[in-house]
Write a protein that binds this DNA or RNA. Structure first.
Length: 465
RNA sequence: GGCGCGAUAGCAAAUCGGUUAUGCCCCGGAUUGCAAAUCCGGUUAGCCCAGUUCGACUCUGGGUCGCGCCUCCA
C-alpha cells in the first residue's frame, strides 16, 4: 500500500486513485529561456522516480509535464538575443531533452506547451468571469478576485489576513485586492506580435498560472490524482492553480469542485546551505555538472536523499556518491546487463518495496540495494546479482554494463584502453619473471594516471579511479 | 512581521519508543608476492532544557540555531 505525503493535508495518506489502477499525474516543468540547472534536475529525476514506481506498482500512469514557453523572462531574453521566441524556446527545449536523456529520465506521456493551449485558457477565464471570480481591471488586465474564492490558502496554509499583513506584498495598481493575480495580460506597446493573442478582453497573453489549469484539465480532466513540482511552487503558483481550476468548476457535479487529490513537492537543491536559484546566481547547469561527473552518478546522488529533504550540492558529496555507486556496479561485474523481472517475494525486494511505498523513501530502498550487493559478493550468487540489477532498474539505475561503467567513466584525457592493456601485459610478464619491483612500478604509474588494477584468478582487470 | 520545515556519528543520510540502518572515511583481521576488490570485525550518533514512560534519538512542552515561502523561481 502506497503512502504519499500530501502537501494539502500535511501528512502521509494512503494513495487511492480516482479510477482503479489508473493514475493521472501532472508536474510543473520548466520555463525554457536558459539551460536547466541542478534544481531542475532534481524535479526531473524525482518525478521520474515517482512515475517509475507507480508503473512498477502496476498502475496505468498518464504523466504530463508541461513546458512554459511564454513568459516575461522569455520575451526579455528573446529581445536581448534579437531572436524569435520560438527559436529561443525550441533551442532550450532541445537542450532540456538532452539533459533529461542523460539523466535517465523517461519522457512524460505528454509535454504540452503553454502556447498551444491558449484557447483552453481563454475558456477557463471566461468561466471564471461567469462565476464572478474574474474581473477586468482598468488597465485591461483580467485578474482573479482571490477574496471571492472560498478556501484560498488551503494548500500553502496561508490566510488572506496573514498574507495581507505581510510586508513584502506590494500594493499593485489596478487590482481590487493586492493579492489578486493576473489571468490575462493586456498587450503592451513594443511587444512582439508573437506574444499577442486575441481574446474577448482584447489582445494579450496569458498570466503564468492559468496555463497549468488549462493543460491539466485538457489532458487529464478536471479532477486528477497527483500534482507535483518544486517546493517553491506551492505558493503562489499551485495555490492559484487551485483557485482557477476549482473556481471554474464550482458547480460541476462530476468532480465536485475538487481539482487534485495529492500534491507532491520536492525539496530544494542547495549550495552552501542556501537554495540554488537563478536569482541568487549560485546555480550549476546540468551540463556543467555532467562535464565533471557521470550522469548516473548524479542521478544516484539525487535519489540518495529523500525527495522532500534539502539536498546539498557539492563536488565532495557527488564524489562520495560515485564511490558508493561504484560499489554496486562492482557487485554486478560478472552479471551482464539484461532485462530481468524483479522477484518481489525475495526479502531485499520486500524491504525495497516497503521503503518505496512509504512516501518514496529512496534512501532506505538504496540501503536494501547495498545489503543485496553484500549478499551478492558473499555468495557469488548470479540470481541475486540479477535481482540487484532489476531493483536498481526500478530507480532508473544500474542498467549499464558494469565494466563499461567502471572503465568508461570520465576518461577525458585519460589513457586509452590499448595503452592500459599494453601496460597490463608488461606487468604480467614482470610478475611471471618475479620482477616485482617492475610490476609494482607499472601498477603505481597506472594508479598515478587514474587506473586501478585488480588481480584475480581470472586475470587482471582495471577501472578508472 | 506571518506561516512552515529541519537539527542523527568525521562526512552524507534513513528507520525506529527497548533489537547492526546504509554509503563514504578511519582502525584491525582474512585474502594477496605486494596491492586493489571482496569478506569479517571495530571506533565515531541523535542541538539544549524540562516532561510523559519501566525505558526516548524516536512522544509532549520550552529554548537555541539553520533553512524555506510570503516577489520571478524546480
Amino acid at each position: 500500500m502506497l503512502k504519499i505525503y500530501n502537501t494539502l493535508s500535511r501528512d502521509k495518506q494512503e494513495f487511492i486513485p480516482i479510477e482503479p489502477n489508473k493514475v493521472r499525474m501532472y508536474v510543473c516543468g520548466m520555463t525554457v529561456y536558459d539551460y536547466c540547472h541542478a534544481g531542475h534536475a532534481r524535479v526531473m529525476v524525482v518525478f521520474d522516480m515517482v512515475y517509475r514506481w507507480l508503473k512498477a506498482s502496476g498502475y496505468d500512469v498518464t504523466y504530463v509535464r508541461n513546458i512554459t514557453d511564454i513568459d516575461d523572462k522569455i520575451i526579455k531574453r528573446a529581445l536581448e538575443n534579437n531572436e524569435s521566441i520560438h527559436v529561443l524556446t525550441q533551442r532550450f527545449i532541445d537542450a532540456m531533452h538532452e539533459d533529461e536523456r542523460a539523466l535517465g529520465v523517461l519522457p512524460p506521456d505528454h509535454e504540452p506547451r503553454a502556447t498551444e493551449y491558449v484557447p483552453q485558457m481563454l475558456a477557463i477565464i471566461a468561466q471564471l468571469e461567469k462565476n464572478g471570480l474574474a474581473y477586468r481591471a482598468d488597465d485591461g488586465d483580467v485578474n482573479y478576485a482571490v477574496r471571492k474564492f472560498e478556501g484560498y490558502g488551503k494548500l500553502s496554509g496561508k490566510s488572506l489576513e496573514d498574507l495581507r499583513a505581510g510586508e513584502r506584498v506590494d500594493v499593485a495598481d489596478n487590482k481590487n485586492d493586492p493579492l489578486d493575480f493576473v489571468l490575462w495580460k493586456h498587450a503592451k506597446d513594443g511587444e512582439p506580435a508573437e506574444v499577442k493573442w486575441d481574446s474577448p478582453w482584447g489582445a494579450g497573453r496569458p498570466g503564468w498560472h492559468i496555463e497549468c489549469s488549462a493543460m491539466s484539465s485538457e489532458l487529464l480532466g478536471k479532477h486528477f490524482d497527483i500534482h507535483g513540482g518544486g517546493a517553491d511552487l506551492q505558493f503562489p503558483h499551485h495555490e492559484n492553480e487551485i483557485a482557477q481550476s476549482e473556481g471554474a468548476v464550482l458547480h460541476d457535479e462530476k468532480c465536485k469542485g475538487r481539482f487534485v487529490n495529492y500534491w507532491i513537492h520536492n525539496g530544494f537543491v542547495r549550495v552552501d546551505n542556501e537554495k540554488m536559484s537563478k536569482s541568487l546566481g549560485n546555480f550549476f547547469t546540468i551540463r556543467e555538472v555532467l562535464q565533471k561527473f557521470n550522469a548516473e552518478v548524479f542521478r544516484f546522488f539525487i535519489l540518495r536523499a529523500h525527495y522532500r529533504s534539502p539536498l546539498n550540492y557539492s563536488d565532495m558529496h557527488i564524489d562520495d556518491a560515485k564511490t558508493a555507486l561504484t560499489r554496486l556496479y562492482t557487485a554486478l561485474k560478472s552479471s551482464p546487463p539484461a532485462t530481468v523481472q524483479v522477484d518481489w517475494q525475495e526479502q531485499h525486494a520486500q524491504r525495497f518495496k516497503a521503503a518505496m511505498d512509504d512516501d518514496f523513501n529512496t534512501p532506505e530502498a538504496m540501503a536494501a540495494l547495498f545489503d543485496l550487493a553484500n549478499e551478492v559478493n558473499k555468495k557469488f550468487d548470479m540470481k541475486l546479482a540479477r535481482q540487484l540489477r532489476a531493483l536498481g532498474g526500478v530507480l532508473g539505475l544500474l542498467q549499464r554494463d558494469a565494466q563499461e561503467f567502471l572503465q568508461g567513466d570520465m576518461s577525458a584525457g585519460g589513457m586509452s584502453e590499448a595503452e592500459i592493456q599494453a601496460q597490463i601485459t608488461a606487468r604480467n610478464a614482470a610478475k611471471q619473471a618475479k620482477n616485482y619491483a617492475e610490476s609494482d612500478r607499472i601498477r603505481k604509474d597506472l594508479l598515478a594516471a587514474g587506473i586501478v588494477l585488480e588481480d584475480s584468478a581470472a586475470g587482471t582487470s582495471w577501472r578508472r579511479a
